[in-house]
Amino acid sequence: MIILHNVSKNFGQFKAVKSVSLSVHNGEIHGIIGASGAGKSTLLRIMNLLEIPEAGDVEINGKTLTKMRGKDLRQARKSIGMIFQHFNLVANKTVYENVAVSLKLARFPRRQRKGRVMECLQFVGLERFQDKYPAQLSGGQKQRVAIARALANNPQVLLCDEPTSSLDPNTTAEILGVLENVNKSLGVTIVIVSHEMDVIRSICNRVTVMADGEVYDTVSIEPKGIHILDNNPKSFVEQLTKDGDVGHA
């Protein structure tokens, strides 16, 4: 369980997050949606103290992160995975090394490292790409590597900042599928920030709506499921015109 208690974050005079309280339940996929600039990313980054809040507390599974500094905080971060809009892979490391570095940081036993890396790559379907460099991968593949890297240390929580916002619709669906699988089969709690309603509606159980640095409301929803389009132009047109009232130009 992630509990934010009255957290605030200012950038100079600007109040990006204003005394927000929020709880994310274990095992759920929790969406955070809102207009650009609403403070979604800042709120997410407060959850692993990438942004240190001026006020308030962050608690994850009983540990109060905001009371931690240095080594303890670094240790706590190892059980909180994070993925980003622009993937943030190390371009000069291979796919394998990108995942392995996360294990090295956590002092994962050296002899079991290779097995664990391959397990994670298999989970995201990239075991054959272990020797490739990020520049040789598509956007969707890069995000899969990032997910594998974030999962390597068996985190309890995965924080996702606009994980599909630089991907095309089909790849978006693929990545959402992977995230859903992470949640269902590994039991990882997921917090996903997005400005796209479709993304949020397809996989989230609960959604927090943010506006101007504040929580407007949190609602429970029934996830609609992920719709994978055929990767052809016809299905794009069908998708665009299926609501009936729009025709061809």
Binding site: R74, K78, S102
Partner: peptide
């Protein structure tokens, strides 16, 4: 972003 990913993974 690469630096942030490193921090988020708990790197010293």
């Amino acid at each position: 972003g690469v630096m942030e990913a490193a921090v988020s993974m708990g790197a010293s």
